[in-house]
């Protein structure tokens, strides 16, 4: 990361928020004031509003919302990471296969992508859910990733095609460099920028999608917690249980907004580097 990005306050703040959430996810059991799945007192502590003892209140079966939020960060962020990793991996493989293929195969691969892009992502996910029923978190994350890589594949193919024509790639060939070396030294490093951007934007898309799926009943199953499941539990009475909506939603917004800012700043950074 270069000095220019480090001096950009928006980028630094967003990266710090993301870093803080990763730390929270790792340390959640230590940070959480109560065990996240402990029903504290079913008679007196059900659905109690935020108080000194329970900052974010309690839920319908007297569990501490703050603790569930912190532990839920683990599931949500892990699923996000797995989904983004899956979609980047598939996108890079498919996109570079298309870029390096003969014209007819390239066309076939890209038209397939176009067909896939025609289906809304949620429809794809719901049809998987209909076929396999409720999935455990990690397979669910893989499915999330597997429905979100089409754009990445297009990006990778376009970038590789453009890079192959770049002057410095031709210059390396003119210098007598072998093709694998040109790919390794002059093409792939230039792909890192766009991919970093794609990753952060994919994260911003996946986290709310997980929440949405859980909300619809296909996501994480109780007593495990994710931000989506917290929201889902309060879904029928959001006005009465405002603390169960507000805090997970704020957490969600902070992650998505930070990932978007990081992605956007990275994009601008690599754009400028390209042009200069």
């Amino acid at each position: 990361m270069t000095a220019r990005l480090r001096r950009d306050p928006a980028f630094v703040l967003a990266a710090a928020i993301l870093g803080a959430w990763v730390a929270v996810a790792l340390l959640a059991p230590q940070l959480a004031p109560y065990p996240s799945d402990l029903q504290l007192d079913l008679t007196r502590l059900r659905e109690s509003a935020p108080s000194a003892a329970h900052w974010f209140g309690t839920d319908g079966v007297s569990r501490d919302v703050l603790s569930r939020l912190l532990v839920g960060a683990r599931v949500t962020l892990l699923m996000g990471a797995i989904a983004v990793g899956t979609s980047l991996g598939l996108g890079v493989l498919w996109g570079s296969a298309a870029a390096l293929s003969p014209l007819w195969l390239d066309r076939l691969l890209m038209r397939t992508i176009d067909a896939c892009l025609a289906f809304p992502r949620l429809v794809l996910l719901l049809s998987v859910a209909a076929a396999f029923g409720q999935l455990p978190p990690i397979p669910l994350a893989v499915v999330l990733g597997a429905t979100g890589w089409f754009g990445t594949a297009r990006l990778v193919r376009a970038e590789l095609r453009a890079l192959a024509e770049r002057s410095w790639v031709v210059a390396a060939r003119a210098l007598g460099a072998p093709e694998p070396r040109i790919l390794r030294r002059h093409v792939l490093p230039a792909l890192v920028g766009p991919l970093a951007v794609a990753a952060s934007l994919a994260l911003a898309a996946v986290v709310p999608l997980e929440a949405g799926l859980t909300f619809l009943g296909f996501g994480v199953r109780a007593p495990a917690a994710s931000w989506g499941s917290l929201l889902a539990e309060a879904a029928d009475r959001p006005d009465a249980l405002w603390w169960m909506v507000l805090f997970p939603a704020l957490a969600l917004v902070s992650v998505v907004a930070s990932a978007t800012v990081v992605g956007d700043r990275l994009r601008r950074h690599f754009d400028l580097g390209d042009r200069a």
Partner: peptide, 14 residues
Amino acid sequence: QLLLQESAASLDPM
């Protein structure tokens, strides 16, 4: 050796 037209752009920016 070929020095490309716009050879200034023929240096890897990274």
